[in-house]
Design a protein around this nucleic acid. Structure first.
Length: 228
DNA sequence: CAGATGATGTTCT
DNA sequence: GAACATCATCTGC
């Protein structure tokens, strides 16, 4: 039923792949249950980019980024957090897209438990309706996965996911094609977050107006032309 | 609201 | 020994 994300769509520049990944769905099945979410914010990293883990060449940690597209690059940072990337580009290239935020779809209670966030135990639909008028519920839903380390925690992702092929149809961790495609006019580009180098490159992308992004857009809608 | 800070461990220089 | 693709919590407007 659920269609796996098209591998070909990742065989391009990471900035373009980052835009194509918006709207795609990440699904993780574990013994505790299944969680999933729509990718609403991404960032592109490539070898010639001083902010990229691959800038200085291959290392044990980044080797998967040089491998074929569609695998997971997961790394540990700040002594506490895990971040999740989708490897993109041709085999041998050292490129990936950091997934920065998800709009929760399934397994919200499990996500909340993993995040230690209080959420009324009601159906997703009911929660969404409550969120419309109750700020507390709204904030709880938004804080489930609105950041690169929040989403890995909510989805139950860590080092075990390193190198996993996300495009395997029956895999426990899968990347699915967007339910509804995100039109280019709804994609906003802005500078990447939390880096010290190459801060001028507008290689962060998010879905315009989506409340589940890690931070609001200051830059306006961007348009038609993808960088690079 | 903005800005500062501590947590905590791996990776790289 | 420094840096780190972060987050929660705190302080002071």
């Amino acid at each position: 039923m659920a269609t796996i994300f098209q591998a070909d769509a990742l065989l391009t520049s990471p900035t373009r792949a980052a835009q194509r990944l918006l709207g795609a769905v990440l699904v993780h099945r574990t013994p505790d249950g299944t969680t999933s979410g729509i990718i609403v914010e991404t960032e592109a990293y490539c070898e010639t980019d001083p902010a990229s883990h691959t800038f200085a060449g291959r290392t044990e940690r980044n080797q998967i980024m040089f491998g074929p597209a569609g695998h997971a690059y997961v790394y540990f940072t700040y002594g506490i957090h895990w971040c999740f990337n989708v490897v993109t580009g041709e085999d041998g290239k050292g490129e990936a897209v950091l997934v920065r935020a998800l709009q929760p779809l399934k397994g919200l209670a499990l996500m909340a438990g993993r995040r230690d966030i209080q959420l009324p135990s009601e159906s997703t639909g009911r929660l969404l309706r409550r969120a419309a008028r109750e700020p507390r519920v709204r904030k709880a839903l938004i804080s489930l996965a609105s950041g690169p380390a929040k989403l890995t925690q909510a989805m139950g992702l860590s080092g075990e996911a390193y190198g996993v092929d996300l495009l395997t149809p029956r895999g426990s961790l899968r990347l699915l094609a967007p339910g509804t495609p995100v039109p280019t006019r709804s994609i906003v580009a802005s500078p990447r977050v939390g880096i010290r180098r190459a801060t001028d490159k507008p290689w962060r992308f998010h879905i315009a107006g989506n409340p589940y992004v890690s931070r609001p857009s200051r830059v306006g809608r961007v348009s038609p032309q993808p960088q690079r």
